[in-house]
Write a protein that binds this DNA or RNA. Structure first.
Length: 488
RNA sequence: CGGGGUGUGGCGCAGUCCGGUUAGCGCACCUGCUUUGGGAGCAGGGGGCCGCAGGUUCGAAUCCUGCCACCCCGACCA
């Protein structure tokens, strides 16, 4: 069999689709815009979810679950929020089907029309704040730190597996606080949690920053974001954390009595990451041979391939290695399939992104060695059997670090400061990536830049430095550089 | 919703223009033998309402009409 993956240089978009399908991550379903997440893809999402869940709990949050359906009227309570989501909602209008009196099949029973339509949640602020109203009476009830793992539906025009699907899996944190300062701190904290997860677990470097007014979440006073750079030079918004001020508290009348027995509106945050992260993971590390996974998120970290096939002597060595590795917390599989030849298995495990592959044949056993192949660099070496498990533990660490450093280097090479609009356009055209440029701060200019170049304002970096300059488009005074890029 | 395209075994396609045996091919799948240190070879085998519904015709994957679905490019978005 030849290559099954389209080369990135040939067609990046096709490459991405090939990775997703051929690495058994997901496939298109019978439902428009919705994917089936297959076991391998789901296993990666599970690893992400477990780690994030732990990090949320370590920062004091608890999980709960709110309904899939939201009464239509709830959505209109917060003006900007409805504006942002109304155009992409799935709506439930009836609750019953009947057989078609004129023929075969089923029709919607017109008698079963709902008095109030239900929206399939595109996000849960409204239903949650309507609930919080009953949960919060006193400052003693605050802060309320709740997270939900859920599916949501946004009826997008165009979809791409993991990056933008009609239904997607995510978590949404919704917290309530007594003061503005505390809520702002919470939102910033969660941005840091996301950044830490992205960098330490996904080995995906991110820029932490805040969104421009135009790019802000519908209903937020401030949106913090983590922005990653994909291999094709496009940015991916990988996670957002919003300071919602008292907007939802006012819309849903959520007040509390403070220590002085005075009524106040509650301050809110919400924050989320989704299965989109899986797409980001793919586009950060993978190559033309298939998926490349950071060891910390790889469902199987080490695979052992018997050469040419299982045999008592090889089995014994493999069992011993597996036992040692498992004792060290490494997930390992022994590929005992007798029908596939070694070469096929090598290619297959590379396609699936297994970080380390061990090859063991009689030749190796005689020499007291195993063949160690790392997925990130595709290097192969022979290592002594003695002490192999410690070697692998170190190697997994090394791979994790190497992937991160490689991605950082790519991002550094693809981040360009420009001082005029021609350079701005040229850089976008020729090498793409992040562009650091002065901007006059107006939404009008931001939109104009987007219209002219398709690059959007990604964020105002948290480490924004004051620097006198001129807006790259209008020449008006600017107080510092922000990041632009074409984005997913 | 605008522009373009495609619907043929699980997947990828040929055949359609110009109607005519039993609808082919590659991959995958099943069986057997030989292989096995980078995607094995040979032999045999299973699997199709040709997107759906009408129509034209002695005869339709092929021509006509209508519908549906999906993909790509735009506007929207995590």
């Amino acid at each position: 069999m030849a290559k099954v993956i389209t080369a990135r240089s040939e067609d990046y978009s096709k490459w991405y689709g090939d990775i997703v399908t051929n690495a058994n991550m997901a496939e298109h379903s019978a439902v428009r815009g919705c994917m089936v997440i297959k076991p391998h893809g789901f296993a990666i999402w599970e690893k992400m979810r477990d780690q994030l869940d732990k990090m949320f709990k370590d920062t004091g949050h608890v999980n709960a679950y709110f309904p899939l359906f939201i009464p239509k009227s709830f959505l209109s309570r917060e003006a900007e929020h409805v504006e942002g989501f109304a155009k992409e909602c799935a709506v439930v209008t009836h609750h019953r089907l009947m057989s078609d009196p004129n023929g075969k099949g089923l029709i919607v029973d017109p008698e079963a029309k709902l008095e109030e339509e239900l929206i399939v949640r595109p996000t849960s602020e409204t239903i949650i704040w309507d609930t919080y109203k009953n949960w919060i009476n006193s400052y003693r009830d605050l802060p309320l730190l709740i997270n939900q793992w859920a599916n949501v539906v946004r009826w997008e025009m165009r979809t791409r597996m993991f990056l933008r699907t009609t239904e997607f899996l995510w978590q949404e944190g919704h917290t309530a606080h007594a003061t503005r300062e505390e809520a702002v701190e919470e939102a910033k904290q969660m941005q840091k949690v996301y950044a830490q997860f992205a960098e330490e677990w996904m080995a995906m470097p991110v820029i932490q920053g805040s969104k421009t007014v135009n790019e802000r979440f519908a209903g937020a006073e401030e949106t913090w974001t983590i922005e990653a750079l994909m291999q094709d030079g496009k940015a991916l918004q990988a996670g957002t954390s919003h300071f919602l001020a008292q907007n939802f508290a006012k819309a849903f009348d959520v007040k509390f009595l403070n220590e002085n027995n005075k009524e106040e509106y509650v301050w809110a945050t919400s924050w989320g990451v989704s299965t989109r992260l899986v797409g980001g993971l793919i586009m950060t590390h993978s190559d033309d041979d298939g998926l490349v996974l950071p060891p910390k998120l790889a469902p199987t970290q080490v695979v052992i391939v018997p050469i040419p096939k299982p045999k008592v002597e090889i089995d014994e060595v493999a069992e011993k290695i597996m036992k040692e590795l498992r004792a060290k917390g490494v997930s390992v599989k022994y590929d005992t399939d007798k029908k596939k030849r070694p070469g096929f298995k090598f290619a297959e495990h590379e396609l699936h992104g297994v970080p380390v592959r061990l090859g063991i044949g009689m030749r190796d056993i005689e020499n007291g060695q195993v063949e160690v192949a790392r997925r990130d660099t595709k290097e192969k070496t022979s290592q002594p059997l003695e002490g192999i498990s410690s070697y692998i533990v170190d190697l997994l660490d090394d791979i994790q670090n190497n992937l991160f450093n490689r991605a950082v280097q790519f991002r550094t090479e693809h981040t360009t400061s420009v001082d005029n609009f021609d350079d701005f356009k040229n850089v976008l055209e020729e090498k793409s990536g992040f562009i650091s440029a002065h901007w006059d701060g107006s939404t009008e200019t931001e939109l104009k830049i987007k219209e002219l170049t398709k690059a959007s304002a990604r964020c105002i970096p948290n480490d924004f430095e004051e620097e006198e300059g001129k807006c790259v488009l209008t020449g008006k005074p600017s107080k510092g550089r922000i990041l632009f890029a074409k984005a997913y």
